[in-house]
Write a protein that binds this DNA or RNA. Structure first.
Lengths: 341, 341
DNA sequence: TTAGTATACGACACCGGTTACCCTGATTGG
DNA sequence: CCAATCAGGGTAACCGGTGTCGTATACTAA
């Protein structure tokens, strides 16, 4: 195929009247080059539009300039938004990014990821949730011996770069929002009873309720599977003809949508009779009717941060234990309004 | 980072008692090796778990074993499903895949893609819709001079590998479905008036109507932007209190969802009073209520096919003009039912 | 003054494959 | 019987960078 003859390091060296090693030094910002030489070489590189060949660099330097994102999130928009953030910093720092879907049960994920790490020849791996949030899926991977960064809510203070999202605070915020709207009879719809995010969100929910001296009614709690249909079922179970909740906090938008539908089935109007909140700000939150009040994560920024930290670590510019925390934004739409009565 | 000392071609050569060139020949299926030698070498490669180093191969062979997917589709699930198909064949054939989002207006896309092609050092590029379906965005790229494959509905018989989806037949099928349900007053909601898929789908719609001798009523046609809100507006415009359509065929699921909501606003029940069909089988089609009757594309298979053809072409195994056609599957859910009355 | 030590380079091997070219022995055709 | 051909295989250069080490020059310290 048409592969243009590129300018190589040899051309630059010849034009600058120095050895290729010196060009290499300039390229990598190493010391041992005088200021004048450095400038001359840089000028020539710019003039010739020189771009070092990634393949050669990779081979000689025993690296690949390839990063990967491991993902198993059913929310595609989340994955691509994360990718966007990762790509942004990776590309400006000379890396490419490959995607690595993980669709096996988490128990086998560790082995599979270790294998991938060994075979693919990537320089670093970014673990995204929910995979990254399942300790049993990681094990060896997060001991700091592998070039791995992690995006997850929990900070188990591992020796790898981590990006956190404070689920608990986010859940507290939505719940408070409902409380401020006058709701007192508030229920909770979790997803995957064992999932770490759900547990943290439940904790935040309880914090908020406790903060106002409200009891949490176990009869108003249900656990789904993060899907629309499980939300629908949860809604049908929870929305009893009498003594039902006036608001439901759901652990993701799909389930919230299901709950809204269950309410409509039961002849309840949303948000007139029942307020419902989602979580994540997935596309469905916007595309649903009524549009869902929810909380959003700065997903793209989290991707950028993780990548930045990972590359810094790989290149020895920083320790492998950086932790960056991000927080939510409450997105008020129409599925939550003042409590009835 | 822990980078295991890999088995190299030299090790294999030494163990097999041949030159590394011979190992290379075996590796690449070249001739000039006796059957016995070939088998011996292969046995040793297997035994040692030898995997040729992609970087070295890339450097020496002046290739990169990197493919890219250019995408600008707002439907994330579509993009990731495509990726799944692409990854499947790419990986088994020794390639990695990088993602390349394109978010600029199509007029500048061509230059940007050419730039990307030159700078990134990839071996091949897969153009996905809607980008790949906008002739003005491609130009030079699809003249057969660049290592590009295209996934799009139109076959303008270019000299590059192409994968087609027959939008017209799919639209015909959904429309026929509505006709079979007894509908006669059927409207059409397009997206992006100039978009090629919408035009083809309109053609299919007309085919079906003509096939039953039905007129198409221009008052029952509207054009949105492929978004929920534009579907909502279209629905509000079309669903007049009297003399309105009894069914609406929409060009994607988001718009169909918007239309359904408009119907509910207007006091119409779906599918009782109005049947609505979507297109694409996006997640929302399942997550919406009522779940949308729609048509789905074999997206993953299309990704695989495009990749297969592209690699075959790159490796000189096939001509660059292969065209593979795929067709729809009608997904009957609950948003379309028998015509009222 | 002399030795010691940074500083600023260059030479050269090397990363792990591929490409271009050469060599040898056996077979075949005339 | 000899030349041409071909299957089978080896040698060495090369792809475009980086790592290691040697060395000349200038500067510093004793």
């Amino acid at each position: 195929m048409i592969r243009k003859k590129q300018v190589t390091i040899n051309d630059i060296a010849r034009l600058a009247g120095v050895s290729k090693k010196s060009v290499s030094r300039v390229l990598n910002g190493e010391s041992g080059v005088s200021e004048t030489t450095r400038e001359r070489v840089q000028a020539i590189m710019a003039e010739q539009g020189y771009r070092p060949d990634r393949r050669a660099r990779a081979l000689a330097g025993n690296r690949s300039y390839l990063l990967a994102i491991a993902y198993n999130n059913p929310n595609s928009a989340y994955v691509l938004e994360l990718l966007q953030g990762v790509l942004g910093v990776a590309n400006t720092r000379g890396y490419e990014v490959i995607m690595h879907p993980v669709d096996i049960e988490t128990s086998a994920a560790e082995q599979q990821l270790l294998d991938f790490l060994r075979r693919s020849g990537i320089d670093g791996l970014i673990l995204s949730p929910p995979l990254s949030d399942a300790p049993e899926a990681l094990g060896e991977l997060t001991r700091g011996k592998w070039p791995v960064a992690r995006i997850a809510g929990d900070d188990i203070s591992l020796n790898i770069p981590q990006v956190r999202f404070d689920d608990r605070a986010a859940a507290l915020a939505v719940t408070n929002h409902l409380l401020q709207l006058g709701h007192r009879r508030i229920g909770f719809v979790g997803g995957g009873q064992d999932s770490a995010p759900s547990r943290r969100r439940l904790a935040g929910f309880r914090d908020a309720m406790a903060g106002r001296g409200q009891d949490v009614n176990p009869a108003w709690q249900a656990w789904g599977e993060f899907t629309f249909s499980s939300g629908l079922e949860a809604g049908r179970r929870l929305l009893t003809p009498q003594d039902g909740p006036t608001a439901l906090m759901c652990c993701n938008d799909q389930m919230a949508a299901g709950v809204v539908h269950a309410a409509q089935e039961a002849g309840l109007s949303v948000p007139g009779d029942l307020s419902v909140t989602g979580f994540d700000d997935a596309p469905i939150a916007r595309e649903f009717w009524p549009p869902l009040t929810t909380v959003s994560q700065p997903v793209e920024a989290m991707g950028s941060a993780a990548t930045e930290q990972l590359i810094d670590w790989l290149e020895g510019r920083a320790a492998g234990s950086t932790v960056t925390a991000f927080s939510h934004t409450l997105v008020e739409r129409s599925s939550a309004a003042a409590a009835p009565g």
